[in-house]
Write a protein that binds this DNA or RNA. Structure first.
Length: 294
DNA sequence: AAGGACACCAACCGCTGGATA
DNA sequence: TTATCCAGCGGTTGGTGTCCT
């Protein structure tokens, strides 16, 4: 069996900004042929570009369904909440924002939202106030050595935290400890979500445990929304059909069958992430050894 | 007016999983 | 079965415009 030819000769293709003429060629090609094998597009459209570059240009800029105006407060709030729930999975977040690409969301996060949070005293990784992280860091000192021991047994290479700390001190004690603490806290948060999801009851099939946080973005945008997750139906009575709504951090979760509204889409989207984490936990239980109590 | 700092974002880079020959 | 390619993804970079001193 033979090999496929390479998509392009990378040393001879054009790089950098796209011209209006190049854009027009892509648009004309897609209009007449549709979206298909991108490796053939440069040749058929008469472009001296890599197929991958053409695909990115189309995906991130030329697609007719894209919005090119600035992000609305509602979109910003959605980004913040999904980022709080699943982290930097930009493509998944972008799918919840019609007309936005993962690149758009990522850029907006890195240039605007992350800074806004930091200025408010909120850590953009954990979405917790810096002050709370510092106090958590004090508490975590009681936990880390114990976890380190179990890790040592697996890897036969004890981690010397005191040495790591001293090397960090030489750079910038506060920044480095803060960064390390963020990583640890974020890691525990993911593990905690996976562990808690594995114990959920069958009835709560569509239940979503978005992480609760002292910081709620909508506090700064709108007034008085729900700030806690409730697993009970708002009416207090769970109907036989199972159709009801709950709330979580202000997001109304509609537990309707075959519902295609935004809230339900959000639930299935977050739940698909949690399912992935459950599969990882099932396949690699040793990763979660000793952490499930968090 | 000049130039340095900063903000923005399009585009690229490198990695991964699935598809393919 | 295996090597390679493709598409998708997140992280990073570089060019350009704007603001500030």
């Amino acid at each position: 069996m033979g090999r496929r030819p390479p998509c392009c000769d990378k040393s001879h293709v054009k790089k950098g900004s796209w011209t209006a003429e190049e854009d027009a060629k892509i648009l004309a090609y897609v209009a007449s042929h549709g979206i298909g094998n991108w490796t053939l597009v440069p040749q058929k459209a008469g472009l001296n570009r890599c197929g991958k570059s053409c695909r990115l240009r189309w995906t991130n800029y030329l697609r007719p369904d894209l919005k090119h105006d600035s992000f609305t407060p509602h979109e910003e709030e959605l980004i913040l909440r999904y980022h709080q729930a699943i982290g930097s999975r930009w493509s998944l977040i972008a799918k919840q924002l019609p007309g936005r690409t993962d690149n758009d969301v990522k850029n907006h996060w890195n240039t605007k939202l992350k800074k806004k949070l930091s200025k408010m005293g909120i850590d953009p990784i954990t979405h917790k106030p810096f002050g709370q992280l510092l106090s958590d860091y004090g508490n975590i000192n009681d936990i880390i050595p114990q976890k380190t021991r179990s890790s040592d047994q697996r890897h036969h290479e004890p981690i010397d935290f005191s040495r790591a700390e001293s090397s960090l001190t030489m750079i910038d004690p506060f920044q480095e400890q803060h960064a390390t603490m963020n990583l640890i806290t974020a890691h525990f948060q993911v593990i905690n979500e996976a562990a808690s999801s594995s114990t959920s009851s069958p009835e709560s099939k569509v239940q979503v445990n978005l992480p609760s946080s002292p910081f709620i973005w909508s506090d700064y945008l709108v007034g008085d929304q729900e700030q806690e997750c409730t697993n009970e139906p708002e009416s207090g009575i769970l109907p036989a059909s199972g159709e009801h709504t709950t709330t979580c951090n202000g997001l109304v979760i509609d537990h309707k069958k075959d519902s295609l509204d935004v809230a339900d889409t959000s639930v299935s989207f977050v739940e698909s992430i949690l399912n992935q984490d459950r599969e990882i936990q099932f396949d690699f239980p040793q990763i979660f050894d000793g952490y499930s109590e968090y």
